[in-house]
Amino acid sequence: MRTFHGIYQDGVVTFCLHLPDVVGPVAVIVVFPGPEDEPEPEVLAWDWEEFEENPF
């Protein structure tokens, strides 16, 4: 099952493609800018669906 996992780092959220049975991300998919007002979001890691429903 492919998953898309995002992490917050240095002001941006980077979503990566993860393949089954492979350790670590295999491709960067989308990079989102972090929240404009807050220096750091409360949540630092997301699955795609979670992020789509509630970005920050």
Binding site: H5, Q9, V12, T14, C16, G24, P25, V31
Partner: peptide, 12 residues
């Protein structure tokens, strides 16, 4: 500027 896979990997 959007970063590389290895930077993302180090971050995760």
């Amino acid at each position: 500027e959007s970063g590389t896979l290895q930077e993302a990997e180090v971050g995760s």
